[in-house]
Nucleic acid binder design. Structure first.
Length: 446
RNA sequence: CGGAGUGUAGCUCAGCAUGGUAGAGCACUGCCUUCGGGAGGCAGGGGCCGCAGGUUCAAAUCCUGCCACUCCGACCA
């Protein structure tokens, strides 16, 4: 993409309304624009990030055998009356009446809709276990939206639902989700800690939230520092094996880790030596639930089991805040100059800065690098504006692309360009093809 | 939902106490100089001063109502 043709409305000054760093940087870098309280437009740069996050979420869901689909944003109130939540959910649910006077709602979640789909299509335990999910916009009419996309009213969420014949199978689904979520967050460069959670309006008796440590987080968290040492890394977990998933669950839930909602100071002190007791703020980026037959009973979702009995299906639901993750990643990865994107979610892999736009040599060298980068499978943002060096560097730093290739007359005389790593600031002089190859290796591997 | 604020150019803000031709910086347009970390000069363009009433010869400014947005708290898969 050529910057001269890209819509990148960056701001030099910080908008007055933005309180936290991710909100400020998303506005300044032209990723988002507020449409109304808690509702945002995603501008081209932000949309790229959102799509890359969403794609990782999909890949990790599909990897463990879950079925992608898409449910509507608007739902009929009837299903919610059936489950009893139409009255229970409260003011957070945006209720709408259509032209025929029918009660509708903008979905805050999809347990009812998915249960309705499954109960009419699945009659036998032979069709289970089954996990369906989608990534769709949700609306929750928060009393007080704030912090940009971190607590918006309209937000993009991946929500998934598992259906199992009994509790044992559903617990496997629960543990499998924990494995899958841990890997999802790790791919985004985040250290997300599972913490025992309250179940809230979703209900159920078994739930963990995933929290990313950040000063500006809305939750207070208490944990054993040992949990920070855990990492899936390249470990190959067989997610079809309930033993393998349970082992991961055990490993990640053994160290004490709770939010202020479930924190038990006495237990904390008894279980964790003082030098490992940590407390911090954190951002919730996902949650998993097992809630048994909470929805299948009122909605009469049953299957015939091996013994020929009609039994209520056991269910769980699982969510990842896709749009919130864009903010959370920035909270976890930025410096005084701007965003520092992890390669996996960066809007472009690299930026190309032509320091002397209009000069035949730097223009042709920059164009050639831009073309080569594309051929190497890299998304590059080529700053071909007729600007001075200062604004060009400042823009690249602000939008936080992992790599920058600087093409200037000084180095070019020796046939070299500069390759700069956004995270470390390290700069090397290399031949153009070598610079591209290094970026390609870093982003795509050998 | 309680409490506190703010709405003036695309952005950040001044002007409002004491009513009298709507301002600055950045951004934008043109020309010139500059050219490896947010340059400088000159000349321009851009506003229903959130909306609606009221007071007044005269309202961005005073009064009333409404709307929007923000902050603190409560709330929050």
């Amino acid at each position: 993409m050529r910057m001269s043709r890209y819509f990148l409305p960056i701001l030099k000054e910080t908008p007055a309304d933005a309180q936290i760093v991710s909100h400020r940087l998303m506005l300044r870098s032209g990723m988002i624009r507020q449409a109304s309280a808690g509702i945002y437009s995603w501008l081209p740069l932000g949309y790229r990030v959102l799509q890359r996050i969403e794609r990782i979420v999909h890949e990790e869901q599909i990897r463990v055998g879950h079925n992608p689909m898409l449910m509507p944003t608007l739902q009929s109130a009837d299903l919610w009356r059936e489950s009893g939540r139409y009255d229970d959910y409260g003011e957070e649910m945006l209720r709408i009446t259509d032209r025929h006077g029918r009660d509708m709602l903008y979905g805050p979640t999809n347990e009812e809709l998915i249960t309705d789909i499954v109960r009419s299509s699945v009659q036998s335990y032979r069709d289970l276990p089954l996990t369906l999910y989608h990534v769709q916009w949700k609306f929750r009419d928060e009393v007080r939206p704030r912090f940009g996309v971190m607590r918006g009213r309209e937000f993009l969420m991946k929500d998934g639902y598992n259906f199992d014949v009994d509790r044992e199978s559903a617990i496997h689904a629960y543990n499998r989700h924990m494995v899958s979520y841990l890997r999802t967050y790790e791919r985004m460069g985040l250290k997300a800690i599972p913490m025992r959670a309250e179940t809230g309006p979703i209900g159920g008796d078994h739930s963990h939230e995933f929290l990313v440590l950040a000063e500006t987080g809305e939750s207070a968290v208490f944990f054993d520092s040992r949990i920070l040492d855990l990492s899936l890394g390249g470990r190959d977990v067989d997610t079809d094996s309930s033993e393998d998933c349970a082992a991961v669950f055990e490993a990640w839930t053994a160290p004490y880790a709770r939010t202020d909602e479930t924190h038990d100071p006495a237990k904390f002190e008894a279980a964790v030596p003082e030098d490992r007791r940590m407390n911090s703020r954190a951002i919730e980026v996902g949650q998993i639930f097992y809630f048994g037959t909470k929805y299948s009973e009122p909605m009469d979702a049953r299957v015939v089991n091996e013994d020929g009995d009609r039994v209520f299906v056991h269910m769980g639901s699982h969510g990842i805040g896709v749009s919130r993750l864009a903010g959370a990643i920035i909270e976890a990865s930025h410096d005084e100059r701007g965003i520092v994107w992890p390669e996996s979610v960066a809007p472009f892999h690299l930026g190309i800065v032509n320091l002397k736009q209009g000069d035949g040599d730097t223009d042709s060298a920059s164009e050639r690098i831009f073309a080569r980068a594309g051929a190497a499978g890299l998304d590059a943002l080529y700053d071909d504006r007729n600007e001075r060096a200062g604004p060009k560097f400042a823009t690249m730093d602000l939008i936080g692309l992992p790599w920058r290739i600087t093409v200037g007359p000084r180095c070019l005389r020796a046939g070299m360009v500069e390759l700069t790593c956004r995270r470390t600031g390290e700069t090397d002089e290399l031949e153009p093809d070598a610079a591209i190859e290094r970026v390609r290796l870093s982003c795509h591997g050998p």
